[in-house]
Design a protein around this nucleic acid. Structure first.
Lengths: 396, 396
DNA sequence: GCACACTAATTACACAGTGTAAATATCAAG
DNA sequence: CTTGATATTTACACTGTGTAATTAGTGTGC
């Protein structure tokens, strides 16, 4: 640990310290020092600053071993953030603390074909309601996050084909001062898995997280990077069968046309809305006929094929799959492996590629956006984002 | 330009200054200051340091306008770097200066099925020859780069299925102190386009660079990022036709099975080795029959389909294609657009997607690796890489 | 040929952010 | 209540930069 590796601005340093706290849900100084690559001295200074600003709390805690640390540092539970999620069937607003605890929530059903004007109307309404809630309690929201499926910085969205420029300016006007980050739902999900404190997440290193629901969305999770650096990986519209099934995007043979909830709802004979009502365990309640299972396996095979294709483009050692495939029996899910075996370079090899499944989180929205908002707050070092929005360059 | 944006280590600052010089092939102080986001004062200090170390030269030059700058700063032409390239038909060694001028070159034919032991034998031999050349002239190589197709940090390579761990340790042992970077050929190509001073490159912003040769390799070029941050995007083994043509990788229906030089050599009736001999313009010399052209268009359609799939995963506004497709008539190349139109979300739209072609650089190896080596030298701030290889973290 | 307007280039000084090392605090166990 | 072990704070030094004052070039117009 010799030299002086890479200097950081105070904001960055605060951000890494706070992120450690968010990730671990509290830590002792020595841990923070290691995680943040700082000396105890620096940690001490930073924490003194953060404590004065009431961003962190220090809980006196008997040392767990002789001569051990005496104070557990946690994020203050008086910091409120807002999470807003748009999914294919509803728009949800929430307020909670940075640990992800929800104090307020409102959910409004919307149509998957929701148009932009209607969205703006509903959004404005919900925001007003939320504003009343905060006003009554005198709480101030430090950071908000809005997640929607398919979002990217590019000006196109496969799910809601809106004018993203207009969306951004609508939101920044409407939020009136509260810093707002917009992100892809699947990235918010990744934030949820990283920060929710649920330690049962199956992958530890870099991996591809895939969510198979209305669409097929993925995100490249780089364990050692900040969440902003994650790239969404929209798998749903990879054409795998020329002249195959028609997809809502107008093309034929897209993966989504085979594996979306809508597509499989026809196979299992349950309407899409009913699936959403039954929530997480909708497949459990069904007695799947052998023929149905075979059809589902065929779909999973395609999912595997597409996933393998994606991993050929961008090699990663592990995939975590969430969504309806996680509800099937392991022997059925094996079809995904078979599909990957036919596209993944060198074939599927369990030594080089780990595939895991996690329960789909249907209906937990807007939990993920709330976690993402907490992340954004922390990333900004707990400082007001509005102030330093001026790193503009002026090339000749 | 108010506050103190993001502090940098001296090494980083030197790196950005040197990179500006590499990119522009020389610049005046005010330009450097703008590009590197530094004040004139800092530029002055850094340059004084670099001049003392004989890394940069200062050429007295009459100012181009009233009161203009007086000294043009360039990279010293006494810095030698080595570029080594392995392609599917030869291994080439070169030494040159950071501007990319080649002073020494040796090329040895190798087989596309070259095995790792044989490679090591040839490499050692060429390196010895190169060593004699440098010894005779008393030049010392400051940085070397080795590029090979399909390379990634992952331990697999679609082209040369070797043990990458062994390759890396072989190279670091063999190079005896000369810092060596290993990279994907397509990334070296990107370095070539960025630093060769050839300004006719068609894309200016972020784009996908695709090279269609023995394989189909791509790289996501992020104009505002360092080259290390570029991701290789191996398109060749995307399965587009289940039960399609057999590919050398053992799968069926890979893009490469349809569009590699080997695949089209069968269509045009010219052997692969002959194509390589004829070099860049091999297709010009052929009188393509209508039927042949139709077959090639079919192949290009698949290339477009796969490219569209890749761009759905990772949206970018522009694609630059190099390789044999660039040699065809524009009306034939239109098939690529047609393919993209069937996979790219929302269809192909010239307003949102720019497709350009550049002449393939067959036979210019190891120029690209040499440019990449220069880039690596500059990125390290012109400091010895060996010294500070110790940013290891030790998490509990 | 010389003052001028203008910009370039250098330098002294101040300040932010950190690490080092010394000083001080805390706890468990005897 | 001392000891051993680690935690925490603090004073000081060092790096890298920006600011602002200073010095140096250059072309124009007289």
């Amino acid at each position: 640990m010799s030299g002086r590796p890479a200097p950081r601005s105070r904001r960055e340093t605060r951000a890494v310290v706070l992120e450690t706290l968010l990730r671990r849900g509290g830590a002792f100084r020595p841990h923070i020092a290691r995680d943040a690559q700082l000396t105890e001295a620096s940690v001490s200074r930073i924490l003194a600053e953060l404590r004065k600003e009431e961003i962190v709390d220090e809980i006196r805690q008997p040392a767990p071993y002789a001569g051990g640390p005496t104070a557990l540092i946690t994020l203050s539970n008086n910091i409120y953030v807002a999470g807003i999620e748009l999914s294919n069937n509803r728009l949800s607003f929430s307020i909670g603390d940075v640990s992800g605890t929800i104090d307020y929530v409102e959910r409004v059903p919307v149509s998957p074909q929701l148009d932009q004007a209607e969205f703006e109307r509903i959004f404005t309404g919900c925001l007003a309601t939320m504003g009343k809630w905060t006003a009554k309690r005198g709480v101030s929201v430090r950071q908000a996050a809005f997640s929607l499926p398919g979002y990217s910085n590019a000006n196109t969205n496969p799910i809601f084909p809106w004018d993203m420029e207009r969306l951004r300016s609508f939101l920044s006007d409407t939020m009136q001062g509260v810093p707002l980050s917009i992100t892809n739902s699947v990235i918010a999900q990744a934030a949820f898995h990283r920060y929710s404190g649920n330690s049962s997440y199956p992958a530890t290193g870099d991996h591809l997280f895939l969510f198979v629901g209305h669409g097929v969305a993925g995100v490249i999770v780089n364990e050692s990077a900040t969440i902003e650096a994650f790239s969404p990986f929209e798998l749903g519209h990879m054409v795998l069968e020329r002249n195959g099934l028609a997809c809502r995007c107008g093309h034929h043979g897209c993966l989504e046309a085979y594996t979306s909830l809508r597509a499989i709802s026809k196979i299992v004979g349950v309407s899409e809305t009913e699936i959403l009502q039954r929530g997480d365990r909708f497949l459990d309640q069904l007695e799947l006929k052998a023929e149905t299972r075979e059809q589902l396996r065929e779909r999973l095979f395609l999912l595997g094929l597409g996933t393998g294709n994606a991993l050929n483009l961008h090699p990663l050692p592990s995939v975590v799959i969430s969504g309806w495939p996680s509800l099937l029996a392991p022997e059925d899910r094996q079809a995904i492996i078979e599909g990957m075996n036919e596209s993944l370079l060198g074939g599927f090899d369990a030594k080089r590629m780990q595939v895991s499944f996690i329960a789909p989180s249907i209906g937990t929205d807007p939990q993920a956006a709330l976690n993402y908002a907490a992340y954004c707050f922390v990333r900004a070092g707990g400082l007001d984002t509005r102030a330093e929005e001026r790193h503009v360059e002026e090339n000749a």
